[in-house]
Write a protein that binds this DNA or RNA. Sequence first.
DNA 1: AGGATAATGCAACAATATTGCAAATGAAAA
DNA 2: TTTTCATTTGCAATATTGTTGCATTATCCT
Lengths: 138, 138
Amino acid sequence: MEHRISDLLKKHGLRSTTMREEVLRTFFAANKRALDHPELERRLPHADRITLYRTLKTFAEKGLIHEVVDGGLATKYALCPDSCTEHQHHDEHAHFHCQDCGKTICLEATATATVQVPTGFRVKQTHLVVEGSCDECF
Amino acid sequence: MEHRISDLLKKHGLRSTTMREEVLRTFFAANKRALDHPELERRLPHADRITLYRTLKTFAEKGLIHEVVDGGLATKYALCPDSCTEHQHHDEHAHFHCQDCGKTICLEATATATVQVPTGFRVKQTHLVVEGSCDECF
DNA sequence: AGGATAATGCAACAATATTGCAAATGAAAA
DNA sequence: TTTTCATTTGCAATATTGTTGCATTATCCT
């Protein structure tokens, strides 16, 4: 497991540090849940806040995690599929945001979305955010 | 025009004040564009920041504008269709977010999105965010 | 016009996020 | 193994975004 973590970092061109390994482990433990800054700080109490910001930014740039838009005030991040790299993100899956507990998870099943954009507009990616109540909130 | 603005406020159960009329005029002038706080402050330089926050919150509660989630740090808002009221929002349209200039607009054409959620999850609403480049950014 | 009620503007504060820089660390070369 | 050097970290300072309390002012109903 430890090997898997540090190998994953190296595979994405990143040095393996204590901070980075712990953040990455936390994301694996979250099991598809998207995590925001306050939650990561709670799970890693000794971690420096600023370093955490920079770690998340770096991870996002290198294709380890992706930003999840769910309307909350703090930015949330979730693990990318293995296939993502620095130059090629494909996070075309939808996200579910629970209006009751605030939890956000990645949905596995691929979403199909068709939308017409005005002339001259070019679509690069679409994000589907599903709002509702999760299984724990009825 | 002035009548239309103040009538619209009254129709939604709001007192007609200078601040509210100016904010509402700004949204009409934006022509489907979603506006965030910094942009509104630039367009209404003499307006008080805090009052502006409260105005936006009130407008959103009364069904005049709706929050637009596009991933930016500051919350964006856009005009609701005429049909929205305090008790009944229907902003099922998609939003387009330009990755180059940051602009966000409401798309008229209704979007169709189907997604499967895990057992026990209940869907109340879906948001479709389309990322790409707008006509002015090629 | 007068009075009840709602909205505003200011101050203070809380939460989220970024930048600069010196010290510590990781990884590769000597 | 030790040296080397760019990268990463941690701290301080600061910027941005958003909220709350309260006295003053404005709106609108009668």
